[in-house]
Amino acid sequence: MDLVLVNLIDGLVTGLLLFMLSAGLTLIFSMMGVLNFAHASFYMLGAYFAYQISLALGFWMGLIFAPLIVGVIGAGVERYGLRRVHQYGHVPELIFTFGLALLIEELVQFIWGRNQMPYQIPDILNFTAFAISGNSIPAYKVFMIFISIAIFIGLLYVLTKTRVGMIIQAALSYPRTVEALGHNVPLIFMGVFGVGTALAGVAGVIAGPVLGTFPGMAFVLGSIVFVTIVIGGLGSLWGALVASLLIGWITTFAKSYNIRMENILNSVGISTPENLSDSAFRDIWAMTSPQIADILPYILMVLILIFRPYGLFGNREA
């Protein structure tokens, strides 16, 4: 029972981190129709910039400035890269962001090398907040939870309660009408892209010390972020949040408990074949939940696409 609580907290941390990445991506995707393959690369840039800044000015300055720099770079990419490619259609845009992801990874390796960076948790947060029957919850995780929730509330407020938010929402659905009303839609696009990448930067800053700051960090998270926004529904902030938490909890629980396929099959009435080692389905029988934990979100995505193509909270088809 205690472990359930611990896993709930761990899953929450994983989920909220995923949310910060997918929130920006889902806004960008739904507004511009661009699958931004480089999104996770901005997450990586956030971690590396924060590490570099933290060497000189400490962790907190990194937390403030790294996302700003990443956001400005993101806005620049939209203004001088994507906007020009946009006129040629979606495929060139896709290829552009894909190339950008490769370019950023190579650049990072060129500047910082291929080793893992010693980006550390700040001393002030490097203690055990509390322990549940021997399982300690580091204070840093609590800090991660609070930062992500604050960002979610902030985003929700801006999008639903402010004038800027209303224009963004309108531009999401009817960009031409909004433009006809005299709003500068390209500027909105640039702003959304900048904020979206800055959010990815924040995620990088706070995830870097725990998940590791290395050139492969973007690749590891890259595909799962797309899964999240497809499950949640394109353009939906709530969808991104729910899908992120769902994925966080599913993978955490699947890894924490060694549920054997054999037990599941037995419980639904299929008995174990006598010569298991000769059976053609041997691999399926021997499967355990930690082994398949990382593909569960993909299975979920396929099911969602079949039964609810617009996602959990979305209102248009993926």
Binding site: D10, K255, S256
Partner: peptide, 14 residues
Amino acid sequence: KVKDFTPYARKIVS
């Protein structure tokens, strides 16, 4: 492929 080893660490501790 493992992004976060926390669940494994929990199992080890418990």
